[in-house]
Amino acid sequence: MQPTERNRPRKRWLSKKWAPYVFVSPFFILFAIFGLFPLLFSVYVSLFRWDGVSPLSQMKWEGFGNYLYVLELEGLDFRTVFTQAFWQDVYSRDFWRSLYNTLWIGVVAGLPQHLIAIPLAVFIHTQFRRARNGILAIYFLPFITQTVAIVLVFQALFSAKFGVINSLLTGIGQWEVAGFAPFSLMFPTEPVDWARPQKTPWIVAFVVWWRYVGWNTVLYLAALQTIPKDLYEAARVDGASPWRQFVHITLPQLRPMIFFAVTLTLIGNLQLFEEPYVLTAGTGGIGQVAETSAMYMLRVAMTDGDFGTASAVAWLLFMFVALLTWMNNRVLKPKD
């Protein structure tokens, strides 16, 4: 064979030793500039009074003043903790109200997501073959849909006078068979005035539920697929009913995913912003009934122009999320 003439290899601009560091560096560079630095800076800002636009030299030292201002604890009569008046007083303070709203919407939207998603996933997993992908895609569709667009549609649907939802609900409520309305107890027979402030958090919670129930179903389905089939076969040999199989095999095997999915919901719902923001046109609703903490924070920054206080809100909220996540870890995390 002819020896092939070998050219001098090009000098490497990237040695084997340094290449990996170069390859992973983009993330760290971007995170340092757009993540870490601003975060640290906001800790610093939270100790000052500052409008965010004037030069840094105009910042006024506040110490923990911003934090105290946000917490607004003065004037609360702690001896009356067990009275309704005390909690009404707490609710009238912006930060606490936003926190309450966030938690309320988080629970009312979050809990049903999982209570419905788990049986739904089990049912789709065991019963559907060919239609399965189609059904799943339908449930998943809301998750990938632009929030603003779909929320605008929901606003139309929820209108009191002409809303589709009212028509549908009263339609079902008034539906009669032989002079008897079977659904009249569960469904309204008169149009509901969705514009009333008491209804706003419910609407927000519904939209949030609607957006994420499919996502959770998909998560649980994925986990179901990893459960070994022979577990069920063994149970069937032992004569276990489907219900007992669900309780004794499915649920325990799903536990890691339940933990994961609930954690995602928890973190996600505590930073809820888009849905309530668009549903209330950025106002938080009449009396800020649906103003979440993230919305409150942004209002303080953009409307009040008080970036120091807004940063303080962010960090108080962060501590709160960290606390809840920690508690969630203690309670739900599967021990192994």
Partner: peptide
């Protein structure tokens, strides 16, 4: 370690970076 750090950033709630991002971009 580096990979762990990357995953850890996923746990940062988005709202803590909202205000800082506005400030930085300004």
């Amino acid at each position: 370690t580096l990979f762990g750090l990357i995953l850890a950033t996923l746990l940062l709630p988005s709202f803590v970076s909202m205000i800082p991002t506005i400030l930085l971009m300004q």
